[in-house]
Nucleic acid binder design. Structure first.
Length: 424
RNA sequence: GACUACCAAAAGGU
């Protein structure tokens, strides 16, 4: 079992989750001498969670006693994290009670997982209460706890609170690490304060820390989004001078930034460079670049990249399809856009509200509002992740009003309200 | 118990 677990762990760490599950099922099915133990279950539960098969994970978790396995802290933690990551925080919190009833003591990590779940949902008050509970149970908050809370504060824009928490953290002899700085830099950038983020970067360097790729990418992306192209390029050069080797993430951010600045050709030069450096472009890289070319009115080049993706076995996800569909629609190439749409459905990619809205916008622009409404009705019918949102409705209002169809627009407004969607 | 758990990052629609 130990060797089996080791192998399984390696497979899971490599991100080959489906392979991991197959391997598990295969081995358990035909090797009666290998009996899964708690650690095996912990790994498999993690696999199922990461694959989004959370209900199956819970099921397996409940079946453990049938295999003479008692869930341990790790099991509970893995299960709680899985639940939190799909937003089912309350169920995760109830496991905290359950584990204690079963005589299993929660650890620092257990609390961190739940605090993270609450912070991601914006439930900072509950998160704070959990920190108190944590201390009460004899668990000391560590860097991860603080980083999690800092991220929670930053994502609701409470940077002042974040700074006081940072001071508190230091006073508790908890040293800020890479993640701490990354969280703060990103928090500043998201507030449109890339200049302050640059200062923080300097501060961090003065303290002898070397910013990593995450930190550089946050800042770089922020500078480009604020239109500070010169500063962004200077940062890129400085970064390389300081010995930071750009990876796929950094190249993608740079390419995206240059495209936003209307320089897709320059961006494409970096695409070649990253490939030469041995970094494979991914869906992020290509979608940014394709959008850049569409924006510059060069759809041929965008399509070229689309083909290149296929040739390079780069997985085309929903965002890539959306960029392509939107770009083609904007050029009035509705027929081609529909072909891509069919191709997307055929590849098993399910359109979401953004993707549907791009298509609807395409029809409206071409004066085919009726067609747009058909697509809209399909969205309502499909439900789930492609429920129309405010933007979808706004696109249709615009289309209907432009064709002087006020009464249908009013009907649509009622439909919107009926579906619980708030106008902006 | 180094066979298992927690934190920061980039792309799409008005």
């Amino acid at each position: 079992v130990r060797s089996f677990n080791s192998v399984l762990n390696v497979v899971v760490k490599a991100g080959r989750l489906d392979r991991g599950l197959d391997f598990y099922e295969h081995v358990i099915g035909c090797r009666k001498d290998i009996v899964p133990n708690v650690l095996t279950f912990n790994l498999v539960v993690k696999c199922l969670c990461r694959l989004g098969r959370i209900d199956r994970a819970v099921e397996l978790f409940r079946e453990m006693p049938n295999w003479d396995c008692v869930p341990d802290v790790f099991t509970y933690c893995t299960m709680m994290d899985g639940l939190c990551k799909v937003g089912r925080v309350d169920e995760a919190v109830s496991l905290l009670d359950e584990m204690q009833i079963e005589g299993c003591f929660p650890s620092q990590v257990t609390f961190n997982v739940l605090i993270n779940g609450l912070c991601k949902k914006g439930e900072l008050v509950r998160a704070g209460r959990l920190v108190e509970n944590m201390c009460f149970k004899g668990c000391v908050p560590n860097e991860v706890t603080y980083n999690t809370l800092l991220h929670g504060l930053c994502s609701v824009g409470k940077l002042d609170k974040a700074v006081s928490l940072l001071n508190h953290m230091v006073s508790r002899k908890c040293l800020p690490n890479d993640v701490t700085y990354g969280t703060l830099v990103n928090g500043l950038v998201k507030q449109g304060r890339a200049v302050d983020a640059t200062t923080l970067l300097l501060f961090m360097e003065e303290r002898g820390m070397r910013p990593n790729e995450y930190i550089y990418s946050s800042l770089l992306s922020g500078l480009f989004k604020e239109g500070r192209v010169e500063e962004a390029m200077q940062l890129w050069k400085d970064m390389i001078t300081k010995g930071c080797k750009p990876n796929t993430l950094l190249f993608s951010v740079l390419i995206d930034g240059l495209c936003r600045a209307g320089k897709p050709d320059e961006a494409k030069g970096f695409l070649s460079q990253m490939v030469d450096d041995g970094h494979a472009p991914n869906a992020f890289t290509y979608s940014s670049l394709m959008k850049g070319y569409f924006k510059a009115g060069n759809s041929n080049e965008a399509l070229q990249l689309w083909m290149e993706m296929e040739a390079n076995n780069c997985v085309r996800n929903l965002v890539c399809y959306s960029v392509l569909i939107d770009g083609l629609c904007e050029e009035g190439k509705l027929k081609e856009a529909m072909e891509v749409w069919e191709h997307m459905l055929g590849s098993g990619c399910k359109p979401d509200a953004v993707c549907y809205s791009s298509l609807i916008h395409g029809y409206c622009r071409a004066g085919l509002v009726e067609q747009g409404l058909n697509v809209f009705n399909e969205m309502l019918f499909q439900g789930g992740q492609c429920k129309p949102d405010v933007i979808t409705y706004n696109i249709l209002f615009d289309g209907l009003c432009n064709s002087n169809n006020i009464s249908q627009a009013i009907d649509l407004l009622n439909c919107m309200l009926d579906h619980g969607c708030d106008p902006d």
